[in-house]
Write a protein that binds this DNA or RNA. Structure first.
Lengths: 225, 225
DNA sequence: GCAGACCGTAACAATTTCTTAACGGGTGTA
DNA sequence: TACACCCGTTAAGAAATTGTTACGGTCTGC
């Protein structure tokens, strides 16, 4: 939980400072912004782990800022907690629809604020954690941890091997020629001899056994269907 | 991405409604079912583009439903995302080699859910192009996999044989002389004796039987109409 | 800076695929 | 029947492709 950066967006400077003080005491890093526009700038620059956003603000209000963030690929996955003065159910619903992940009314006790923040961060950590897994045959290929599991065994493949395996496994059955593999796994304009793919395939087979990746002579490789 | 239909299967009505609401807001069409059995019925009827499937359900649980779907020709290629409660994740998911394409633990933020759905759809869009598949007589000639199927049999033809077969099969009934076949399958400026074609035709016949490619004496070859 | 992991490359071995050439059978025709 | 033409079939060697290993370079963590 430590080391998380939180962006606080509020036009009331006193409140901003108060929140900053309390968050820092809890070990968070804090960024501040005084309106939506500035908030988005900060977010783009620093990619905070969470945004605390006031709804009522000059220049660009919180609602609008959040809508923009949700449309921005860079920012759309950052969790947002709304702050508002009124406990008004209608705005609450609207706020959540626009893409907020939680909603807090002012005034709020700092302990409650902190616990909400931690709750949202925890939720995001968890979902983030479980998300990139692939189950093929008897393998679990976990892209978040860069680990391949088979039963109780765990294989720690080097990056390229892992990514090659992942790419093929996520297209189970489809043949891909070496050039395509290089483009997709190594990158578009990387100059590498295509036999490099062979060597990596061999290393994967060496570790996992050769019954996963099939060779299609004259064409390329394929993850076994 | 728009216009995609998503079938959500979950026994918790509230959650079902919440997910429906959020998916519709994203422009998806939504089908709902409250247990596995109903889910399969809906899937058969409407052929959704993706299924969001809860694992723990009464009547027929998600695991069982997915197994059934994977065995059903009509449904087997529909991508499935599992939903699972955090607690039973570890045990349940290990038995899931059957055919989930992803899974997500509850509770989940809607933004995360949406992004996962889009990711899976994107992956399937990319890979699921029916264009490269040819169905002739009792054969399926799949150029993506470089595999020929007949019923449960699979034939892995060498490249030239495969390409020759594919070329003829995709022009079912049309006769092509050897020179044309060489140009089209071997390439324009390849110097090869035309009897080579005969040998390849023979090999194909040897593997698949001789009732697919017909000889037209004095002219060339033809895939049987 | 050193050890070790990782990556790309080259070289050679092993394997598969392709091509050729040769022979034989069938068919039609003079 | 004899001949010409075309295709089927086979086997051998050529060619292409991949497997495997080893080596140097780079980067990283200690």
């Amino acid at each position: 939980m430590a080391d998380k950066t939180i962006l606080v967006v509020d036009d009331e400077k006193d409140l901003l400072d108060l929140i900053e003080y309390n968050l820092k005491k809890e070990g968070f890093k804090v960024l501040k912004a005084e309106n939506g526009e500035e908030g988005i700038e900060r977010a783009k620059e620093f990619h905070p782990d969470l945004v605390l956003m006031d709804i009522m603000m000059p220049k660009m209000d919180g609602m609008e800022a959040v809508e923009k963030m949700r449309k921005d690929d860079e920012l759309k996955s950052i969790p947002i907690i709304f702050l508002t003065a009124r406990s008004d159910e209608k705005t609450e619903v609207e706020g959540l629809n626009k893409g907020g992940d939680d909603y807090i009314t002012k005034p709020i006790s700092t302990t409650k604020l902190i616990s909400r923040i931690k709750a949202v961060l925890r939720r995001f950590d968890e979902t983030e954690e479980e998300v990139n897994r692939l189950e093929v045959h008897d393998l679990t290929i976990d892209k978040d941890r860069y680990i391949v599991q088979r039963g109780d065994e765990e294989f720690q493949l080097p990056r390229k091997e892992f990514e090659l395996l992942y790419y093929l496994a996520s297209r189970k059955g489809k043949v891909r020629d070496r050039q395509t593999l290089l483009n997709k796994v190594w990158g578009d304009n990387i100059y590498v001899v295509d036999r490099t793919v062979d060597v990596h395939v061999r290393k994967i087979r060496e570790k996992l056994g050769d019954h996963y990746i099939e060779t299609v002579k004259g064409v390329g490789y394929r993850f076994k269907e």
